[in-house]
């Protein structure tokens, strides 16, 4: 069964970026979402607080990137570069947070974020593998 016949695989990027955005508002540490942690840390140590917004920033940037390629496949390289930038924010967040709080993280928000990032990665590879003929045929 060729799955490409039934669904447009480019949609997985949109799903992935939506998951990343949703993860910002879902529970990461025993009932606390990242937006809660951002608000708490802003009042205590503002220098660390912005880091907790990175998944949201990443999700928004990747949403723009994946939407661009859905809008027109001709922009696929731009879309890939925008997704690189978006995922960069997520990588920094993960590298900073996961080693520090590895034992405390395990709620649904974390899994949403990881699955979202993986879906975006798969979308990037899928977009790069799409044949240029598709562009000539007008998507």
């Amino acid at each position: 069964m060729n799955i490409r016949k039934y669904i447009d695989l480019r949609l997985i990027g949109i799903v992935g970026s939506c998951l990343l955005i949703v993860s910002q508002f879902s529970s990461w540490y025993s009932g606390l979402s990242l937006i809660n942690i951002f608000l708490i840390t802003t009042s205590v140590a503002i220098e660390d607080s912005f880091l907790y917004l990175f998944p949201l920033i990443s999700g928004i940037i990747c949403f723009i990137g994946t939407f661009l390629v859905l809008y027109k496949l001709e922009y696929k390289l731009n879309s890939v570069i925008i997704n690189f930038i978006g995922l960069g924010f997520f990588l920094i967040f993960i590298i900073e947070i996961v080693p520090k709080d590895f034992l405390y993280i395990g709620s649904v928000g974390f899994y949403f974020a990881v699955i979202g990032a993986l879906l975006i990665l798969l979308d990037v590879i899928n977009v790069l593998k799409l044949n240029n003929n598709l562009i000539e045929e007008g998507n």
Partner: peptide, 25 residues
């Protein structure tokens, strides 16, 4: 082709990231 080159770059970059994450944990 640029698409294949981008796939190689992408996979290696995230491979490096996974290494850092595993070592850090």
């Amino acid at each position: 082709r640029i698409e294949n080159a981008l796939i190689i770059s992408l996979l290696l970059h995230y491979g490096g990231f996974s290494l850092i994450l595993i070592i850090s944990i």
